[in-house]
Design a protein around this nucleic acid. Structure first.
Lengths: 325, 325
DNA sequence: CTTGACGGTGAAATCGATTTCTGACAGGGT
DNA sequence: ACCCTGTCAGAAATCGATTTCACCGTCAAG
């Protein structure tokens, strides 16, 4: 692998001049020509490790997500990528597997590799952003806010989505509406079920409402287990609102296998069903603009990298509600 | 951010000693203690850009895939990650979007960031691995082989999978069996449809077989369009073999909407259907061990990084066939 | 004709860790 | 007492690019 010194030697100039050619500083046309020819001849490409060290900066951003197998996050990733790519940045995706330790490792790498910025969908536990902040690296939180840090944040409107979904079920004529939501310590899970609770207020007595709430793990099996559990109640629910896409798959699995599909039973889900085309009809969906979240977050990050110094913002994206025919 | 010099100063030793403490070279217990305390006090973490530059090596591997929204690849990614993580490596995921240019960029970054190795699911076009090879970086190809380079390769048994799937449809009593496969220039698409053709030989006249073959783009819409096209034939097929998971979703979408589900129509797919639980019953599936492919590839890569110098190997993983009840 | 500004260039410092190279010192063998 | 070996630690070189600094012409203004 050719270095800048070899190029300089071949072109008969100093390394400084070679660097200037590649960084758009004024160099006379003749020397520029010489350098470019030499570089081409040696198929020279600047060593990024060296550049990153000297510049304290790279043109890579990290996108840190908890579950790479969740289409919501991959769809978001596409949004991030499109924007970053257009701005000349590359995106590396880091999967934390909801593991706080892995998250810490990746954030750590982001800092010490001098990455330009981080988009973080945090795991439940409090994330430690101190070293990122200390280095002045921009951070954008997506999907979930980050406790204790003032950072730009892009989220869906969780509470109102939960409210709208539940109200739709009520309008469809259901009364005993259960809710399967995520872990207690996850912000989005809390907010979405809060929306449900608000909608249910007055529809059922408060203690009954509470009895129809289940916390599960935001994955397919969690939705399945919670659904089974709900159906075993003395008075099983007539409808259910599930607060994330994967749990919805699990819950639907159970319902379909028992023939409990709309319009016999009501079903609402927060977040588009993956490959929804195969799901039963009559399901109410709170569409979360995953890709748009990614686009917005990346745009925000690019601005920050570009030197935007405004106080941090929180952007709440509206969801759309629909019921498949 | 503290540097090794500040730590050295605080501990009253030389930078070299600090480095040795962090790299497991013999240092007296007292000095080691001093250094560790100083490091903790300054919350020192070594700067990876500097380390990478000096060592010509990092502990990050790149996983380059064409479509991050395809569950096959994300599932594979999980396998890679598990192995790499256990071996102390981090994985960064690069999405090429089937774009040869993006692929080149990421490979480029991998080289010039001194990454430890690359696992590559190549795009259709011929990939340029020359700089990776020149630097002696290990590469493992997954899912698809790489033309012109002798690298370790991990693939599914495409031809025999196509053969088995089609035979299963024949056994189910179907005769007019179509095949929807991927782009002409993609190796896996070719091999899988070759399996289908082989199974069909003798079942239908060769020219009829050919008339039931469609090439599409390996995505949901490709499957949908091809399926619609096939159904418009004068003599539409009774069954169809679709050679990848996403196209299967598209094709099923069409079939389900027209009530053409098993056992009325035959359906076989190469690769597990994403979130398959919602798909109709009676579908024949060639299960591709995506995660296992990832695990195998990562293991191979780790060995190479560890200095394994054997001639390159190609590992073909067997698929399992099943029909959902 | 002098002064100043400015574009172009090279020498050398710099980023922060790792890794020689070298020397100091302790302990063991003869 | 002397040499040899081995352990530990510091000084300095190194990785490869960027960037500061200094200098040299050249040309325009005074």
């Amino acid at each position: 692998m050719a270095t800048i010194y070899e190029v300089a030697a071949l072109a008969g100039v100093s390394p400084a001049t070679v660097s200037r050619v590649f960084n758009g500083v004024t160099v006379s046309p003749e020397k520029s020509r010489l350098v470019k020819d030499a570089a081409a001849q040696l198929s020279f490409t600047p060593n990024r490790a060296a550049r990153n060290l000297r510049r304290q900066n790279s043109d890579v951003i990290a996108l840190v997500i908890p579950d790479i197998e969740n289409p919501f996050f991959t769809s978001m990733a596409r949004g991030v990528e499109d924007v970053a790519h257009a701005a000349g940045y590359s995106v590396v995706l880091c999967n934390t597997d909801e593991d706080h330790q892995k998250e810490a490792t990746y954030l750590h790498i982001a800092v010490s590799e001098n990455m330009a910025g981080v988009i973080l969908a945090a795991t439940g536990s409090a994330s430690d952003l101190s070293s990122l902040v200390a280095r002045g690296r921009p951070i954008v939180a997506v999907d979930r806010g980050i406790r204790q840090y003032e950072v730009d944040t892009v989220v869906a409107d969780n509470r109102s989505g939960g409210l709208a979904a539940t109200r739709s079920l009520i309008q469809q004529g259901f009364t005993r509406i259960a809710c399967i939501t995520g872990p207690v310590d996850v912000e989005t899970a809390q907010q979405r079920s809060d929306g449900w609770r608000e909608a249910m207020h007055g529809v059922l007595p408060d203690d009954q409402i509470q009895a129809y709430l289940r916390h599960a793990n935001y994955r397919v099996d969690g939705g399945r287990d919670a659904m089974i559990d709900l159906l075993e109640l003395d008075q099983p629910p007539e409808a259910v609102f599930v607060t994330n896409n994967l749990m919805s798959v699990g819950a639907l699995q159970v319902l379909v296998s028992r023939g409990l599909t709309p319009p016999d039973a009501g079903f609402a889900t927060f977040g588009d069903l993956p490959f929804a085309s195969l799901a039963p009809r009559g399901i109410t969906v709170v569409h979360v603009p995953a890709r748009q979240i990614g686009v917005t977050a990346a745009t925000l990050l690019m601005n920050r990298i570009g030197g935007d110094e405004q106080p941090s913002r929180t952007i709440v994206l509206r969801n759309e509600l629909s019921t498949r025919d």
